Amino acid sequence: MAIDNTPMLVPHLVVEDAAAAIDFYAHAFGATEEIRLLHPEGKIIHACVRINGAPVFLNDDFPEYNDGKSSTPSALGGASVTIHLHGPDVDARFKRAVEAGATVVAPLEDQFWGDRYGVLRDPFGHQWSLAESVREVDYGAMAEDMAQQAR
Rank of each mutant, 00 (worst) to 15 (best):
Ser71Phe: 11
Glu99Met: 02
Glu16Leu: 07
Leu37Tyr: 14
His39Asn: 15
Leu58Gln: 01
Ala102Trp: 02
Ala31Lys: 02
Pro63His: 06
Ser80Cys: 08
Phe62Asp: 03
Asn66Arg: 09
Asp61His: 08
Leu37Ile: 12
Phe24His: 02
Pro40Phe: 12
Val134Ser: 10
Asp110Tyr: 06
Leu76Val: 03
Gly30Leu: 01
Asn5Thr: 15
Asp23Ser: 13
Ala100Leu: 06
Pro7Tyr: 10
Glu33Trp: 06
Val134Glu: 13
Ala100Ser: 13
Tyr25Arg: 09
Val105Gly: 05
Gly140Ala: 14
Ala79Trp: 00
Val137Arg: 04
Ala79Ile: 04
Val98Lys: 04
Ala79Asp: 01
Thr32Leu: 11
Asp138Ile: 12
Asp145Phe: 13
Pro11Val: 10
Ala54His: 12
Tyr65Ser: 10
His39Tyr: 13
Leu38Trp: 04
Asp60Phe: 00
Asn59Cys: 15
Ala47Ser: 15
Ala92Leu: 09
Gly68Arg: 08
Val90Trp: 04
Glu16Trp: 00
Ala18Ser: 12
Gly42Val: 07
Asp4Lys: 13
Asp60Arg: 02
Val134Thr: 15
Ile44Ala: 01
Phe29Ala: 05
Phe24Val: 02
Pro73Ser: 08
Met142Asn: 02
Asp115Asn: 14
Pro88Val: 11
Val104Cys: 06
Pro73Leu: 06
His86Phe: 08
Ile51Leu: 06
Met1Asn: 12
Gly140Asp: 14
Asp17Ala: 14
Pro40His: 10
Glu144Met: 13
Thr103His: 05
Glu33Met: 09
Ser74Asn: 07
Asn5Ile: 14
Gly78Gln: 09
Glu132Gly: 01
Val10Met: 14
Val104Leu: 07
Pro107Lys: 13
Gly30Thr: 11
Thr103Met: 06
Val49Ala: 00
Gly78Cys: 04
Glu109Ser: 12
Pro7Ser: 10
Val137Ile: 13
Asp61Trp: 00
Leu58Pro: 01
Asp67Ile: 04
Pro88Leu: 11
Lys95Thr: 15
Val137Trp: 01
Val14Asn: 01
Arg93Ser: 05
Glu132Asn: 08
Leu108Ile: 12
Val15Met: 04
Ala102Pro: 04
Thr82Leu: 03
Met142Lys: 07
Ala100Pro: 04
Val15Cys: 07
Thr103Ser: 13
Ala19Cys: 10
Thr32Cys: 10
Gly77Asp: 11
Arg93Leu: 07
Tyr117Leu: 03
Gly87Val: 01
His84Cys: 08
Asp115Glu: 14
Gly101His: 05
Glu33Cys: 15
Phe24Gln: 02
